[in-house]
Structures are given as structure tokens and as C-alpha cells.
Simulated scan of single mutants.
Amino acid sequence: MNSVAVKNTALLAAAARAAHLIVDAEPRIFADTLAYAILGARAEELVGYHRLHGAHVVLSGARTSVVTRSRFT
């Protein structure tokens, strides 16, 4: 995997963690209060997608997977 793919994967995971605090209802699985800041200039673009489509079963499931894995680690 090249460095661009790794960076994009990390950004998408951070976006899922940030969106979890904004989109998902209580109880929270994992509260990553730094994830939004990590996204930098792309924060609204990436989290905005979750705001618009967050209830979609695939996006919701992916977000749950990311935050569950983050909480476990």
C-alpha cells in the first residue's frame, strides 16, 4: 500500500470517529475529541458526508466498526 492510500485510510477513519460524536445517538462507543482537528482543512468535507448520509446502513456500519475498533485498542 502506498503512502497516499495509507493517508486516505487514516483520514477516513478519523472522519468516522469525529462523525460518531456528531451523527450517532447516545450511548457513544468511543469519544475521540481530537479526530475532527486531525482532519484539518478537509474536516467539513469528510464529516459533512456523514451528516448527509450518516443513517445509510453501510456508512453507519462502517462508522460503528471504526469506533468499536478504536475503543478496543
Rank of each mutant, 00 (worst) to 15 (best):
L12V: 03
L12K: 03
A13F: 08
A13Q: 13
A15D: 03
A15M: 11
A15F: 11
A15Q: 12
A18E: 07
A19M: 07
A19H: 03
A19C: 08
A19R: 07
L21W: 05
L21E: 09
L21D: 06
L21Y: 04
I22R: 14
I22V: 15
I22A: 11
I22T: 07
I22Q: 13
I22E: 15
D24L: 12
D24C: 10
A25Q: 14
A25H: 10
E26D: 14
E26T: 09
E26W: 14
P27A: 09
P27T: 10
P27M: 06
R28Y: 09
I29V: 15
I29H: 02
I29K: 09
F30C: 09
A31S: 14
D32Y: 02
D32Q: 01
D32W: 01
L34E: 15
Y36S: 09
Y36I: 07
A37P: 00
A37G: 01
A37R: 10
A37C: 01
I38K: 06
L39I: 05
L39K: 08
L39H: 03
L39W: 04
L39C: 02
L39D: 05
G40T: 02
G40M: 04
G40I: 02
G40F: 01
A41H: 12
A41W: 08
R42Y: 06
R42T: 05
A43Y: 02
A43K: 03
A43V: 01
A43D: 02
E44M: 09
E45M: 11
E45H: 12
L46P: 05
L46A: 03
V47I: 14
V47Q: 06
V47M: 07
G48I: 04
Y49E: 13
Y49D: 11
Y49V: 10
R51Q: 11
R51E: 11
R51D: 05
R51V: 11
L52M: 06
L52I: 08
H53E: 08
H53R: 08
H53P: 00
H53W: 07
H53F: 09
G54D: 07
A55I: 05
A55G: 07
A55Q: 15
A55E: 15
A55L: 14
A55K: 14
V57I: 11
V57T: 10
V57K: 07
V58P: 00
V58E: 13
L59I: 11
L59R: 13
L59K: 06
S60D: 15
S60M: 09
G61P: 04
G61W: 02
G61M: 01
A62Y: 10
A62L: 13
R63W: 02
R63L: 03
T64L: 14
T64Q: 12
S65I: 09
S65M: 13
V66I: 11
V66H: 01
V67E: 07
T68M: 06
R69P: 00
R69Q: 09
S70T: 13
